[in-house]
């Protein structure tokens, strides 16, 4: 592999890592909002799921 190809592959991999972190953070935010935020409307709507999924509830 020549030097240029190595650079391209490395920068591609770095961008890929950043995108993966971004996607994982979105996923974490979704799980936190649906499973853990204690606002009463959210809590009531997700109540049964939180219990069944083993999240701390109440």
């Amino acid at each position: 592999m020549n030097a240029q190809a190595t650079t391209v592959s490395q920068s591609h991999s770095k961008a890929g890592f950043g995108i993966a972190v971004f996607a994982a953070l979105i996923g974490l935010a979704i799980v936190s909002i649906t499973g853990h935020v204690q606002a009463s409307t959210l809590h009531d709507a997700a109540h049964d799921v939180r219990h069944a999924t083993g999240f701390p509830c109440h």
Binding site: A24, G27, V31, T34, A45, D48
Partner: peptide, 27 residues
């Protein structure tokens, strides 16, 4: 009905993390 919607949301959230990790493992 809300339970179905929220279960789908929770597992979609987990899936985002899971697939992100899979992408890094594949690299």
């Amino acid at each position: 009905g809300l339970s179905v919607v929220f279960t789908m949301l929770v597992y979609s959230g987990y899936a985002m993390v899971l697939v992100a990790l899979m992408s890094q493992a594949e690299e």
